[in-house]
């Protein structure tokens, strides 16, 4: 009879009690979803892997502060999101350029843009056709506030409730942002929508 799979909370408790293999199991369970999430967020595979590892390190050293009344997946996505946002802001400071400041548009009216990252995607071999490349670039060009819920909901398959918990927003605001993000994507990906 196969051994029953332990829940996230059980693994966390075991880790708190010094079971290093339990934490390794958590890493194995979440490493690919987290890497994929960060990859779609940053459009940079190496950076995504680096931040995913950093996420697990932070989880490990803060594991005593984790309360099991929250879903572990929410907790770990939230940490990863914060790290990714910090990374993007660091990139912005490096570029010293933001078109949203020049336009001066209202933040929530959809006139906020980010400069798409036109660098050649190092993971081109992973995208087997032009369509995937265009989708990846369209997602990466979304403003953060739309990009995060779109990736979590439509690519990672998280529930609306979980997305709102990760973003620390109300459910209505989360749905609104998802809706707005999809509208922006439809405009960019019209040729693939029939």
């Amino acid at each position: 009879m196969p051994e029953e799979k332990r829940s996230d909370h059980e693994l966390i408790e075991a880790t708190k009690n010094g079971d290093e293999s339990a934490f390794t199991e958590i890493v194995t369970r979440y490493k690919s979803p987290l890497t994929n999430y960060l990859y779609r967020f940053l459009n940079d595979y190496e950076e995504a892997v680096d931040l995913a590892q950093e996420t697990f390190v932070r989880v490990y050293f803060a594991i005593d502060r984790y309360h099991t009344q929250f879903a572990f997946s929410t907790y770990i996505y939230r940490i990863a999101t914060n790290l990714a946002i910090s990374e993007i802001r660091r990139r912005k400071r490096r570029r010293l350029f933001s078109i949203s400041g020049l336009l001066g548009g209202e933040k929530d009216d959809g006139t906020e843009f980010e400069i798409p990252d036109d660098r050649a995607l190092p993971e081109n071999e992973l995208l087997d056709n032009e369509r995937d490349t265009q989708i990846a670039r369209a997602i990466a060009a979304l403003p953060e506030k739309y990009r995060i819920p779109i990736i979590l909901r439509d690519i990672q398959g998280r529930s609306y409730e979980e997305v709102s918990a990760v973003m620390d927003l109300g459910l209505g605001t989360t749905k609104s942002r998802i809706s707005r993000g999809r509208a922006l994507l439809k405009e960019k990906l019209q040729e693939y929508l029939r």
């Binding site: 890497t35 892997v49 997602i139 690519i155 999809r182």
Partner: peptide
């Protein structure tokens, strides 16, 4: 749109991740 987004390939973590 959601079907289109769900269809793009997902990347995996490297083998030495742990």
């Amino acid at each position: 749109l959601t079907n289109l987004l769900a269809s793009i390939p997902k990347v995996s973590a490297p083998n030495d991740f742990e």
